[in-house]
């Protein structure tokens, strides 16, 4: 009897606890279930991810430059400029009263100030010691979970994978199964170029297309390394693709040395239309598209 009484009391206490825990859980769940409505993205990657998810951010840092440089996915006209990516306008953010601010480790020292304005979610961005593409993919899913868009997000990623697989088949067909090695560059001056190496988005796009690098370079934070253009002469077999824009074509392309480059001699050089190379996960898809278009313009051997 006594024992029963005790167990009853214990039960009561336990259930009381349980209820409290449930209530607490419920409140946090309710909090997280309430999807943020007014979101500010302080990085371009986050802005891309939001737009791809069908969410229009309230404001994006450097929104005007985004429209010029990133272009795809297009930012809706209504999106406000939240100041620069290095120094977002805190007073403007305070005035906008967002319910979520998406930040990055580069802005960690602002976290205190940002948290006074709204909850802050920080997503890792470009770094030398991790896989930039995998990180972007994870970031996208994490963000989707926060907005209860996980299913759509996974579907969108699957679409991207299918799309890239289709592109890959196109390239394989075009080159009759013998894929060339490829190096992607962006001209800096008529004498120096950025070469995209390991851990760059273009190289991840190449990986997904099963293309091997013709001029392998170790991983760097942004995946780019500056090289004198004459260095490119070491590429004997591969294809070289350059990403637009390059305003000084006339100074480089007619030179004897450029004309003697093995890839120019063998007509293994093509132009990729202007595409953003430091973006979020879907920038890889857009890059793959542009790369394949450029590759298809080359004659198969």
């Amino acid at each position: 009897m006594c024992l029963r009484h005790f167990t009853h009391r214990l039960n009561g206490a336990l259930s009381h606890c349980f209820v409290t825990v449930l209530m607490l859980l419920g409140s946090t769940l309710a909090y997280s279930a309430e999807t943020p409505q007014r979101v500010v993205a302080l990085t371009w990657e986050a802005a891309e991810h939001l737009v791809e998810m069908g969410i229009t951010p309230l404001a994006v840092a450097d929104a005007d430059d985004y429209k010029v440089w990133v272009v795809r996915p297009a930012l809706p006209e209504a999106v406000l400029n939240a100041g620069s990516r290095v120094e977002p306008n805190l007073e403007l953010l305070a005035e906008l009263k967002p319910d979520l601010i998406i930040s990055s480790p580069a802005l960690d020292d602002l976290r205190d100030k940002l948290e006074r304005i709204a909850p802050v979610e920080s997503f890792d961005s470009y770094r030398q010691d991790h896989n930039n593409y995998e990180t972007a993919r994870q970031n996208y899913l994490k963000l989707a979970r926060q907005f209860n868009h996980l299913d759509q997000a996974q579907q969108r990623l699957a679409e991207m994978d299918t799309h890239i697989a289709g592109l890959r088949q196109q390239v394989i067909d075009h080159f009759h199964g013998r894929l060339p090695e490829v190096t992607i560059i962006r001209f800096s001056t008529p004498a120096v170029a950025y070469v995209y190496g390991d851990n760059s988005m273009p190289q991840y796009a190449m990986d997904l297309l099963h293309l091997k690098p013709a001029y392998p370079l170790p991983a760097t934070a942004w995946g780019i390394t500056q090289k004198p253009i004459s260095e490119l002469g070491r590429i004997h077999e591969g294809v070289v693709l350059h990403i637009e824009p390059f305003s000084q074509k006339d100074k480089l392309f007619p030179t004897r040395l450029w004309q003697a480059m093995p890839f120019v001699q063998n007509h293994r050089f093509a132009t990729v239309r202007s595409t953003w190379t430091y973006g979020g996960v879907f920038s890889v898809e857009y890059l793959a598209e542009s790369l394949v278009d450029a590759l298809l313009s080359l004659q198969p051997e």
């Binding site: 120096v192 500056q226 253009i229 450029w258």
Partner: peptide, 11 residues
């Protein structure tokens, strides 16, 4: 790069 002064030449 120009600001840093580089002598690399292509021709």
């Amino acid at each position: 790069l120009w600001g840093a002064g580089d002598l690399a030449q292509m021709d």
